[in-house]
């Protein structure tokens, strides 16, 4: 059951990702990206990242994508079909590069040793035990507020700077 779900969600993610790239309308691209993000959230659940799955849906698919949609609407680009695909030559090149990259990475992965043994991970599932001990949120919260406290606080600064930066950049009158 898990495996089936996993393959299904993976297929959905990849398919909608392809549509993100090939859709003519930006609004459609945004919508397909939301589908991808939802599928990824499902994959996260199956990979025992429950909290991240929730954040993915709420923050990514919810907040950030709404922002994208908002900008698309604001600039009134929703239905304008810009000639925004490159020339045939560039398309060929882009496709070749994409396939080369994917094939290359996949080939590396399939030819490599088993990731479980390659990284010396123990048979005992590290995530499962943590989840059992602290719960989905606690598993993330404890290291975040202990080991990663400083980066966490720095992230808040980053967000603050980003807020100020976007306010300044998007002002109507020239700064």
């Amino acid at each position: 059951m898990t495996e089936f779900l996993f393959f299904l969600l993976s297929a959905a993610a990849l398919l909608s990702a392809v549509f993100v790239v090939v859709s003519r309308k930006p609004v459609a691209s945004v919508m397909f990206l939301i589908v991808t993000l939802f599928s990824l959230a499902g994959l996260f659940v199956l990979l025992e990242a429950h909290f991240l799955a929730a954040v993915q849906v709420i923050v990514y698919a919810g907040a950030i994508m709404v922002l994208f949609l908002f900008v698309v609407m604001l600039l009134n680009l929703g239905h304008v079909e810009l000639p925004d695909f490159r020339s045939a030559m560039a398309r060929l090149l882009a496709g070749a590069f994409g396939i080369a990259l994917a094939a290359f990475t996949a080939w590396t992965l399939l030819n490599g040793s088993d990731p479980l043994t390659a990284y010396g991970a123990s048979a005992a599932d590290p995530i499962q035990s943590v989840l059992k001990a602290r719960g989905a949120i606690g598993a993330l919260a404890v290291p975040l507020f202990r080991t990663y406290l400083v980066p966490f606080e720095v992230t808040s600064l980053l967000l603050l700077v980003a807020i100020i930066g976007s306010v300044v950049l998007a002002r109507k009158e020239a700064p």
Partner: peptide, 10 residues
């Protein structure tokens, strides 16, 4: 660049 690096690693 990415492909070159990946190539050297692989």
């Amino acid at each position: 660049g990415v492909l070159v690096i990946l190539g050297t690693v692989a």
